[in-house]
């Protein structure tokens, strides 16, 4: 049973933004609700006024045009999973959507909800960070665009201001031949919260790295980019030695904790392993666009 709360149901974005600002900031946007409802039920969510975004159908889209990818904030995880365009253009994101929770939750959970919840174990975040995604935040006062890397500020802390909501996630389409990979490690194969996850986006020209992004989930208070590892790779030939060094640096970017799912040490170990594995896989060649993995069978 859920505690009592108020629910506003706007049908247009301006109406929604008006409701979010009018109530003096103690109102929260309610998208898929797959985190909010359990949190309300479990007493972890204190807000008692919500603006349902379910009526804002215009915010549910995926666009691939003019060298950019634009995803509406209310696009469900299942939309991403079902989209051939996402599979082709953002295979790591596609893999993370496939590994996300269970089927019914994927059908309800939204991309913005996953980002705005601010959990370091958010499955979609490492791929999105590795794609240099921007997020568009709207309020009654207007729009602002923020790099995703500056959106998640701490554990369940985001740059979202009172009265604001996310409307869009976008990123430049990576250069041809960019390999995008994702790997999630959970305590079971299906419907698991990640113990650690990693995403890599890598462009190679004759084995020389011209672009590198490495993002890790569940290793710090937020999903993190391994920027020193990325810098190390840039302009160099992707040798086994270099991969090893980059993996070490990536682990250094992690500041994991012990929790129910794993110890700090295990996360540091697997941060190295996953980064090394994904970089090696990238070095083996782009292969087909969907050469992403979520588990280790075979």
């Amino acid at each position: 049973m859920l505690p009592r709360f108020e629910l506003y149901q706007p049908t247009t974005l301006p109406e929604a933004l008006g409701m979010l600002s009018e109530t003096g900031g103690n109102v929260r946007p309610f998208a898929g609700g797959t985190n909010l409802i359990p949190d309300l039920r479990g007493g972890r969510e204190q807000a008692r006024k919500f603006v349902s975004l379910a009526g804002l159908d215009d915010l549910r889209f995926t666009r691939f045009a003019n060298g950019r990818v634009e995803i509406g904030s209310l696009t469900t995880v299942s939309d991403l999973h079902r989209s051939h365009e996402v599979l082709r253009n953002a295979p790591a994101l596609h893999a993370s959507a496939t590994a996300f929770a269970g089927h019914m939750v994927r059908c309800t959970a939204t991309i913005a909800g996953n980002i705005c919840y601010g959990s370091p174990s958010a499955d979609l975040l490492p791929p999105l960070l590795s794609l240099d995604a921007n997020v568009t935040l709207a309020s009654a006062a207007g729009l602002r665009i923020l790099p995703l890397s500056r959106f998640n500020l701490g554990y369940k802390q985001t740059a979202l201001k009172p009265g604001e909501m996310m409307t869009q996630i976008s990123w430049p389409q990576p250069a041809r031949g960019t390999v995008q990979l994702f790997y999630k490690l959970g305590l079971r194969k299906g419907d698991a919260i990640s113990v650690i996850s990693a995403a890599v986006s890598l462009t190679l020209k004759q084995m020389v790295c011209t672009h590198a992004r490495i993002a890790l989930g569940s290793v710090a208070a937020t999903v993190v980019r391994a920027e020193r590892a990325e810098a190390l790779l840039l302009g160099r030939e992707l040798t086994e030695k270099l991969i090893g060094e980059a993996a070490e640096l990536a682990a250094d970017a992690s500041a994991p904790i012990d929790d129910l799912r794993a110890s700090k040490e295990y996360r540091l170990h697997t941060a190295r392993v996953l980064v090394r594995r994904l970089l090696r896989q990238a070095a083996e060649g782009p292969g087909e666009a969907g050469s992403t993995r979520r588990s280790t069978e075979g």
Binding site: P38, G102, L187, R188, K189, G190, D191, A192, I193, L260
Partner: peptide, 16 residues
């Protein structure tokens, strides 16, 4: 108890 629900207490799924 720190594993009070099916979110923390993990039984095998169809994918396992």
């Amino acid at each position: 108890l720190v594993t009070p629900s099916f979110s923390e207490y993990l039984i095998p799924t169809s994918e396992d």
